[in-house]
Design a protein around this nucleic acid. Sequence first.
DNA 1: ACACTTATGGTCGCATCAACCATAACTGTA
DNA 2: TACAGTTATGGTTGATGCGACCATAAGTGT
Lengths: 249, 249
Amino acid sequence: MRPLGVQVEDWLKDSDEVEASWLTVDLAIFTLRDDQLMMLLVERGLEPFLGKPAMPGGYVQKNETLREGALRELSEEAGIDGSRLHLEQLGTYGDPGRDPRGRVVTVVYLALGPDLPDPVGGTDAERAFWAPAARLEDGTLGLAFDHREILTEALEEVRRKLEYTAVATAFCGEAFTLTELRTVYQVIWGQTLDPSNFRRKVLNTTGFVQPTGHHRLPPTGRPAALYRRGEAWLLSPPLLRATTSGRRD
Amino acid sequence: MRPLGVQVEDWLKDSDEVEASWLTVDLAIFTLRDDQLMMLLVERGLEPFLGKPAMPGGYVQKNETLREGALRELSEEAGIDGSRLHLEQLGTYGDPGRDPRGRVVTVVYLALGPDLPDPVGGTDAERAFWAPAARLEDGTLGLAFDHREILTEALEEVRRKLEYTAVATAFCGEAFTLTELRTVYQVIWGQTLDPSNFRRKVLNTTGFVQPTGHHRLPPTGRPAALYRRGEAWLLSPPLLRATTSGRRD
DNA sequence: ACACTTATGGTCGCATCAACCATAACTGTA
DNA sequence: TACAGTTATGGTTGATGCGACCATAAGTGT
């Protein structure tokens, strides 16, 4: 344990009221497998919540940025090379009492990737596994800490971002067909979309995708054109879901 | 300074690599004054960045949640009762080197309110003042730490949230006219909107606003109907800006 | 040749939108 | 009282976008 620099203490007035805290990063890693939205979990090997599934994560180390810490945990705990994943900060959870060990503040990162492999053994990733997000959302499969609450917000974020950003492409490989892209929307939104109308909207949104010129032969049926993601991140106009009356943040 | 519980250390493997950190909340407080978007700043009374303007903020205290800490700082540093403000977490900044004193992680909250008063003296708020967000964005007025970067992200967030949430009502009082609401959009987006079309879109978005039945007499002109905010938070359909090609997060 | 499957393209009626124009309801002034 | 000025509100119209639906293209296997 490295001691804190003394110069910090000099600036504290109400010393008794302030405490140092432990900083962790947790990862909400999502992928699509078998037309299901899956989340990567690890079975905890330590108290508290020993044996319970939890989102992978760990302490931020000295001299690394939060993002670097997230990438490191992605590699160590999940055995995933995060350099090709979409990684974005979701939020920070640091209420006293959320961790029985004391004030542990966790910065949660959202990691999205195309059909990711099973975690390989040999590292911490041995105890990692994929679980259907639906089971976690409805509580069929319990989670450690406040991770279910975090999951709920992560899902809401992903569903909403699908509307007005090109984040759906993060679930596809380098090249993808429009049907694959449509499947992403269908699985995550839980609704079917008309192939023809979807195609028109995507192609009319400037910078969403660009054609590669190549095609892919499906097991049966007409070959599908391949696309890669375009330069645009914000979609205008956005791809809106069927209108549902919105609720508060 | 309260010592950390020893039980935390027991779980650390690579003790040398992990360090405790200081947890602060910073506030990006925005309001509208004289048809300008203003941000509340305080002149720093301590090193580092002594004398430089900075977003108000401070250390999170023991046994308070992050949100409670934000509300407390809102009161202490800005003299503002935050219970009637819109308060939402924006993001967390904790890279090593962002603060010369060591690892200081700050959770930034966005606070939005209707025409807020000048900070009153007597507390820390003496050194607080309102500054036009435009001056801060273009760098005319420099900020301490990485606060300009944070401001940029805060502004982007507000501009985007105006589109698909009812957050604009946070800048209005309890009751407001549609012209006032339109002014919020115009000032923050920096573009004029057609009064007639704006009215139709707002009233057609279910749950955005609801009429109070009362009217308000402007200095000149026809009386305007008063509205209060409705139950809906997410707007469907959203109020979209003039189409601009989007850029990456 | 044919059925089957998936991708792609087009049509049509309806809703929405932006750009206007028109009117209502107040104030102050001649 | 008449009228100009100002702001709020309401309506019209032409273009655009979207959803539901149908049609065709281009592969597969029998």
